[in-house]
Design a binder for these strands. Structure first.
Lengths: 222, 222
DNA sequence: ATCGTCGGATTGTTCAACGATTCTTCGATC
DNA sequence: GATCGAAGAATCGTTGAACAATCCGACGAT
């Protein structure tokens, strides 16, 4: 193995711990819809399935609970998080706060280029008629917007929010008609951003988020 | 506090688990400055001190790590989080995003009254020359602003941010001169909010946060 | 049908153990 | 005398087992 060439912060090779790999696996299953909201996660079962100890599963649960992907009910177990009344509005409130704030602050040319890249990624996915890739591209787009702010903390908040939305809205709302609308919106938002019209970009983004919230609330009960 | 009259969510009597109480105790010690940034937290030691098992301490650590109050270094241990370059800016970026967004959305009369209450709390603390209470009042003020949005998620994000700031800036920056300035600012922000001048309230708040960031960066290295 | 009780299942927590990794100390070598 | 490396101590990561506390469902009595 090559020695570290930079003398700055020692680069940890950081093999993810077993607990983190378990969390990652569960996150994957949650995002893919293999574990549906409300499902019960029994410690012993998962421990056996993944070939790890119950304590390790416990640590993974703690991590997922802090991300609101699962809910712990004392002495009863952990359950995949379910959509409570107001949760949709809550999630979009967070998105409006951090996405709009990020875009209004502008960003470096590289970060703006990343936003543009996500837009093009979406167009390609649409051309290829790949709904899965289309969904990913949209998440990349909004992730790139938050990344404009260059804030570690906002990035992780956004990651968590997007993970929650994947959990709730995964395949159900994935019809092409639903998607094609915001493809143009993303383009417009990105164009405004590139033109330095930050105020306008913020308004477009706000409008998009409001409409998107309405759509989700229409699809789901109330 | 009045019991919830709505029959909706079943109220868990929720005796906090041991792990949560350990986390709470550590959070307290971190906020009070008993555990300074960079300090090492040895699992075995804390387990013995608090009379709990090492595994339980581990769970508490996981929670604190998710709040960025401590940092886990694989195979080395957990350390009280330290201020890295850019962290101050990062924290204020989050605050600008969620506080300004919240205040621009306005809020119910009750929530606005809570903001007013925090302002008055600050004035009383200033009159009594109680610096500790003054600091708390300021945190209540900004917490109340975020509470305007009535978002569970924004509230917990803000809680975490404020906990981080307590950790980094606890007693050090607590001189009366530093405080008296923003007492008037809080009053002005609150007045604008009460008058429904949300745009203006947002600008005042932004200005305050920018200045506050500058001050903190001046006090701490760069 | 309602209520209380009992047994089974699962969680919360503890404890002991062991390999793996890091830190420290202490010589040996140049 | 400084550098390097190897032995040893300390700590973490993870496991497995154990036990009390709690919850759930069934069963039976009123």
């Amino acid at each position: 193995m090559a020695p570290p060439l930079t003398s700055s912060a020692r680069v940890r090779i950081a093999v993810p711990s077993v607990a983190e790999r378990v969390a990652e696996e569960l996150r994957y299953q949650l995002a893919e819809g293999m574990l549906l909201p409300g499902a019960r996660l029994t410690e012993a079962t998962i421990a056996e399935d993944l070939g790890v100890s119950r304590n390790t599963v416990r640590e993974a649960f703690a991590e997922l609970a802090s991300e609101r992907l699962v809910v712990r009910q004392p002495n009863r177990g952990v359950f995949v998080a379910t959509l409570e009344a107001g949760d949709i509005h809550d999630l979009y409130t967070v998105r409006r706060a951090i996405e709009v704030s990020s875009i209004r602050g502008g960003g470096s040319p590289e970060r703006i280029a990343a936003v543009r890249a996500a837009v093009e990624e979406g167009k390609r996915a649409a051309a290829a008629d790949d709904n899965d890739a289309l969904g990913s591209a949209n998440q990349h787009f909004h992730g790139a917007i938050v990344a404009l702010a260059e804030s570690k903390r906002l990035d992780t908040i956004m990651r968590h929010v997007l993970a929650e939305m994947r959990l709730y809205f995964h395949k159900a709302t994935a019809d092409a008609h639903f998607y094609s609308a915001w493809l143009e919106e993303n383009e417009a938002i990105c164009a405004a951003l590139e033109a330095g019209e930050l105020e306008r970009a913020g308004e477009l983004l706000t409008g998009y988020l409001n409409r998107s919230e309405e759509q989700q609330r229409a699809v789901h009960g109330e």
